[in-house]
């Protein structure tokens, strides 16, 4: 009875929440926005150094957001590897001995690397960019890991920490260097905007992939003698 009551109350709260939110959305949709940001953006796109408006917003107009966002990712990576046990890297449980996976991975890994490169390159004028490329790169790393390919750089050592920090530090250096060159922070000199953004994108791709892969690897694995998930607790 108590359980039913709890569910009923929660359903009522969620319905009220949905109703209120839907009403607000409906009311907002009825009035036009007083500021036309897309128009303003289109006007300034030329000065941004890239042709794709989303990349321009991410890496130029609102680049401080992106800098902090990569910071969040690095924090997650740091907190993740602080949990890691070195032994979990060697855990044979993690390696699937699936021969199909092994065969597929010989095809997929090179293909995914090419795809990651393409996504990175496409980011300047169509959908794509550092994060998408980094995610694909990380996915190919996960695949290699599952296939049992040893990846020593994922040990929580100097190399891993350097990889985590690389993209973020380059971004940060550009931010400060642009200020030293005389303009404001994260204001790229117009002549260099394009190459700078390209460099940032490349190192970010690398670091994003590293962070995601490190987080995948540092999650401890279950041992066989432990209870199955769901049975415990």
């Amino acid at each position: 009875m108590m359980r039913f009551l709890g569910v009923a109350i929660m359903v009522a709260i969620c319905l009220a929440f949905a109703g209120g939110l839907a009403l607000t959305v409906w009311q907002i949709a009825g009035t036009p926005a007083p500021v036309n940001l897309p128009h303003l953006l289109a006007e300034n796109l030329d000065a941004s150094g890239v042709d794709h408006p989303i990349t321009a917003v991410l890496l130029n107009f609102r680049s401080y957001d992106t800098l902090l966002e990569i910071g969040v990712l690095v924090i997650a990576g740091i907190a993740g590897i602080s949990m890691a046990k070195t032994t979990s890297l060697e855990d044979p449980d993690l390696r699937t001995s699936d021969s199909l996976l092994y065969a597929l991975q010989r095809w997929f890994v090179p293909l995914m690397l090419v795809l990651a490169g393409y996504l990175l390159w496409a980011g300047s004028d169509r959908p794509g960019g550092a994060f998408q490329a980094g995610a694909v790169l990380a996915a190919s790393g996960v695949m290699m890991r599952l296939g049992g390919i040893p990846m020593d750089f994922l040990r929580p050592g100097m190399l891993l920490r350097f990889g985590l920090a690389l993209g973020f530090s380059v971004f940060l250096l550009v931010a400060v260097a642009s200020a030293l060159a005389g303009s404001a922070f994260l204001a790229y000199p117009e002549a260099f905007a394009k190459p700078l953004i390209l460099i940032i994108e490349v190192v970010l791709t690398f670091s994003i992939a590293m962070v995601l892969l490190a987080l995948f690897v540092s999650a401890p694995v279950n041992r066989t003698e432990e209870p199955e998930e769901g049975e415990a607790g």
């Binding site: 969040v72 990712l73 924090i75």
Partner: peptide, 13 residues
């Protein structure tokens, strides 16, 4: 896109 990256970082952590 920024929000997704933040959400992924939080989820992974």
């Amino acid at each position: 896109l920024t929000g997704i990256v933040v959400a992924i970082a939080a989820t992974a952590l």
